[in-house]
């Protein structure tokens, strides 16, 4: 079953974010909480590590590097196991 990795920053008042870089590639195994990717705020003050919502395999990178993202955007998908 595919599970979305949704970008949900703690503070919705935060400024715009971009995907900085993915730490894993499609096909890599993940555990719940594994560090998937780093996003940075455009104000250059915050870099956040987005964790995997579940264990499984990184099935797909939906939002690539340097793409601008908003709260609620799907960043990738995990093939949950």
């Amino acid at each position: 079953m595919l599970k979305d990795v949704v970008f949900q920053p703690t503070d919705t008042d935060a400024t715009e974010f971009t995907v900085s870089y993915w730490k894993l590639d499609p096909g890599d195994a993940v555990s719940e909480g594994s560090e998937l990717l780093v996003v940075e705020s455009v104000d250059e003050k915050t870099a956040l590590v987005v964790p995997s919502p579940c264990a499984g395999v990184l099935a797909e990178i939906v939002t690539g590097e340097e793409r601008t993202i908003s709260p609620g955007d799907v960043l990738g998908r995990i093939d949950a196991q």
């Binding site: 949900q8 870089y21 956040l48 987005v50």
Partner: peptide, 22 residues
């Protein structure tokens, strides 16, 4: 190819729980 992040690794923080700040 990944571009260089603007912030070094030691300036990253884990994504928190939105409910915690409400």
């Amino acid at each position: 190819m990944s571009r260089d992040p603007r912030l070094p690794a030691w300036l990253t923080k884990p994504l928190g729980d939105p409910a915690s700040i409400s």
